[in-house]
Design a protein around this nucleic acid. Structure first.
Length: 271
DNA sequence: CAAAGGTCCTGCTCGC
DNA sequence: TGCGAGCAGGACCTTT
């Protein structure tokens, strides 16, 4: 479910409601996630103020007075702010209660998500410290991407989805960005010109900005409703469109498994 | 039975 | 031959 724009949308939804508030209770309903939820450590959060909520890659960082709760939504995770004692869902895992109408609940059916506690700099945590730059930051440039690609034989789509190169580009937006830049997803990363990387990095930024802007329109619903947030599918040009005409040239979109993930591209436009 | 929007870990291969 | 980096594949789960 979550790609970077949705995690960013989640951040924007919960931050204004929760930041500055004090945790009054932690309730763990099912500690079983990709890593076990550290109940003991989290229980010490009670009485602490939530200072800030930030995002790094697809990780949300809830910084309390003595440490940080790091949350990753995995493939199927979602966060919502609910009223205390509102009905529990089968796959609700944990709730951090910041007051009767400010309970942050994590739901994750597939359990690929994570809830981590650290009392050190969260950016230095082993799962975060090797991450590449944020795609929307100034550090993510043509030069950077091009240099990183040197000598790489992996398909450019896998290269883009590698968090040690650049974070936040998931399976949907990898296909979409490559389509916009007219690059074949299977092309070896090291065999792409700097000029083409300029196009690619430019499109990645535009695409993610657009998606975040779209996500913003669900923002209100997201924090209040039980409905799952959705991608704005009308913005997708190739993902999930196998057999449909290419928006640029009308040739049929092809789908193919690359690096064990389904990929979509136009045979004519992308090379 | 296949596939779903993530990513970590392991073990192998390749090139210096 | 030895080494490190890069790469592919498996693993983790439930739901549709």
């Amino acid at each position: 479910m979550p790609e970077l724009p949705e995690v960013e949308t989640t951040l924007r939804a919960i931050e204004p409601i929760l930041s500055g508030k004090t945790a009054v209770a932690i309730r763990v309903f099912n500690a079983n996630l990709r890593l076990p939820i550290p109940k003991e450590a989290l229980s010490k959060l009670v009485g602490e103020r939530l200072l800030t909520v930030r995002r790094r890659a697809k990780y949300l960082l809830l910084e309390y007075q003595t440490g940080t709760v790091i949350i990753h939504l995995g493939m199927s995770g979602s966060l919502r702010v609910v009223k205390r004692s509102s009905d529990l869902h089968k796959h609700d895992h944990i709730e951090i209660d910041h007051g009767a109408t400010r309970c942050l609940r994590l739901r994750d059916p597939r359990r690929f998500g994570m809830v981590i506690w650290t009392d050190k700099n969260p950016l230095k945590h082993r799962l975060l410290k090797h991450l590449g730059p944020e795609p929307l930051s100034e550090d993510f440039t043509t030069e950077f991407l091009w240099k990183k690609s040197k000598g790489r034989k992996t398909p450019v789509k896998n290269f883009l989805m590698n968090g040690r190169i650049v974070v936040g580009i998931g399976n949907i937006y990898a296909s979409e960005a490559l389509f916009r830049a007219s690059i074949h997803p299977r092309r070896r990363a090291g065999r792409i010109s700097k000029i083409r990387y300029a196009e690619l990095s430019r499109h990645i930024k535009i695409l993610l900005q657009e998606a975040i802007a779209s996500g913003g329109t669900t923002l209100k619903d997201f924090a209040k409703n039980d409905g799952e947030p959705g991608y704005f599918k009308q913005n997708l040009q190739v993902y999930g469109k196998s057999g449909y005409p290419c928006p640029k040239c009308k040739a049929p979109i092809r789908s193919e498994v690359i690096g064990q993930r389904s990929s979509f591209y136009c045979v004519k436009c992308q090379y």
